[in-house]
Design a protein around this nucleic acid. Structure first.
Lengths: 112, 112
DNA sequence: GACCATTACCTCAGATTCTTAGGTAATGGT
DNA sequence: ACCATTACCTAAGAATCTGAGGTAATGGTC
């Protein structure tokens, strides 16, 4: 039974992708399924949004990619973090924590 | 001293405004200062974004407003939640909790 | 009583990111 | 031979925010 599939709050996709790539050598299509697995399907991540984000992030120098083969035998583009990407992950993680804390404060909902 | 002023993740402004109006009878300009007070200035809320959001939300029937006078003597538009607005607040609050929890999961950062 | 900072509101252009809706190509199974 | 699935891509449009402009009224100061 899928949880309510939430819209993405614009901006969070980046940090989710960066974190997913921290473990290295993941191809695009697999990123979505990893994220959805970890969250029980809370996010509704359209693949259109994913690929656009990957291309943006590569342009900004946070990611590098190369073609290879998925476990299934299909061609797939494998991504990994650059040095800048790792720094960006650190930055956005801190940012998220601070941000979420502030929202919880306003909502008077100290996280459980 | 001002904390790093974060960009807003698009979409969160709604729930912050709804929550701030729960206590009733607040005018637009005061909403920003209340939010900033509660969060130690973590958010950088442009007033342009605020007024646009208020108008959107009133169009959607979540808010009602009327002109009055602020404590300072200036004219000001006072907002309050409608029934739909209260329901929306409930909905978006639940949504935020579920969402934040999922992000924390992916980031492997169980909230402190 | 003329000036000016502040409060409080408003609007528009542009940028970013997401949604929706298309599409291609290759693989493995029937 | 067909078809579902995997894996990728793109473009138009919608929603929301940033940045930069603006108006009007109030209270304080010289």
């Amino acid at each position: 039974m899928p949880a309510a599939t939430n819209q993405l709050f614009r901006g969070t996709l980046h940090v989710l992708i960066l974190k997913t790539l921290q473990s290295g050598g993941v191809h695009g299509y697999a990123i979505v399924s990893r994220i959805q697995k970890r969250t029980g399907g809370v996010f509704a991540i359209e693949d259109g949004a994913l690929y656009q984000a990957l291309h943006r992030m590569e342009e900004r120098g946070w990611l590098e990619s190369e073609w290879g083969r998925a476990e299934t035998g299909k061609r797939a583009r494998f991504y990994q973090l650059t040095g800048d990407g790792k720094r960006q992950l650190g930055f956005e993680t801190k940012n998220w924590i601070q941000y979420a804390d502030a929202v919880f404060n306003v909502l008077q909902l100290k996280p459980a």
